[in-house]
Simulated scan of single mutants.
Amino acid sequence: MKSFEHVYRLHRLLKTARYPVPFARVMDELECSRATARRVLAYTRDVLGAPIETTRDPRGYRYTDAAYELPGFWFSAEELQSLLTLQQLLATFQPGLLDEALAPMRARIDQILKSQGLSADNAGRIRLLRLAARAPGQHFATVAAAVLQRRCLRIRYEARSNARISEREISPQRLVHYRDNWYLDAWCHRADGLRTFALDCIRGAELLDDPARDIDEACLDRELGGSYGIFAGAPTATAVLRFAPARARWVAAEQWHPQQQGVWRADGSYELSVPYHRDDELILDILRYGPEVEVMAPAVLRDAVAERLERAAARYRKPGA
């Protein structure tokens, strides 16, 4: 662990503690040895000037000034990861798209990272590999403005399944970055319901003066995030997937859905239950595991996966075999 992370953790521990913190708890929080914990305490007190006092009854450490803050910028590993992720995410927009608006944000993130000893070159050593990412399209700025200004949009939308273009008036709710692609959750006034639109399929976008209809966050999560995948809808079934022991440990550490349930079986396999509505995306993810996963339920999903596998195998059979 980097020294600034040790300092950050110690600072947060002493800031939030109501009573003096025992040395053993300092070691546990910093996840370090006794010698390292003593060095961090001494550095924070003597070099950074933190008002750390050693108490005798009860024995421990505390701040004598509750308003004290560390000088400069200090971040946990999770916060640094978020900054680096945001920095690289901003870099994925095609040249010209929001350049002027995003330039100050990029500069500010660079400044914060530099304060932690991370130059632009060093930050680039953390790679975010994007798989099957699509450009967000030329209407990202208009859509984002509608979301933030809470105004209606008129869009021309091309359905990817059949290439038909429809015109809709929508009340945008939130932008979603999912699996390296951008989507818009919105209330569609034509369909009179919530829908999710892929930004790269929006062929035209006009910002309207009408105020957007606001949908409660809990309703959005229930209707659009209740089941598996981006084009989800309220769940209507639960997929039960059994992963072979060779793959079980990896899958057990993954989150397929916030409401998933997992059970280890006596033979070392792992059974994962995931709520879903549309099975398109779920089937594609199941097929990634090939023979190391079996769909146990429901029967309609099991049959659909089996049929896909049979069609795939047929492509590799020799004629007449």
Rank of each mutant, 00 (worst) to 15 (best):
R18V: 15
R247Y: 13
C152V: 01
Q260T: 09
V240T: 04
E29I: 13
N122S: 05
D267I: 04
P245F: 04
A244R: 01
A35D: 06
Q260H: 08
L89I: 02
C201T: 03
T36R: 12
Q149D: 13
L48Q: 11
A313L: 14
W264P: 01
E29R: 08
G229M: 01
F23Q: 05
R39Q: 13
R203H: 05
V263Y: 10
R56G: 13
Y68R: 05
G233Y: 14
A163P: 08
L208G: 12
V143Q: 06
L309P: 03
T238E: 01
L86A: 07
R56C: 14
V143E: 05
L175I: 02
A107E: 10
P51D: 11
Y316N: 09
N181S: 14
R302I: 03
D209Q: 14
T92Q: 00
A141N: 04
L241C: 04
L208Q: 12
Y68S: 12
S166N: 04
A306H: 08
F23W: 10
V40K: 03
A91N: 00
G49K: 05
L13D: 13
A66L: 13
G204L: 06
D46T: 09
R108K: 14
P235S: 02
A218K: 11
E78W: 03
V47H: 08
R12H: 15
D180W: 06
W182Q: 01
A91Q: 02
E167Q: 11
L70M: 11
V40C: 06
D214R: 15
A232I: 01
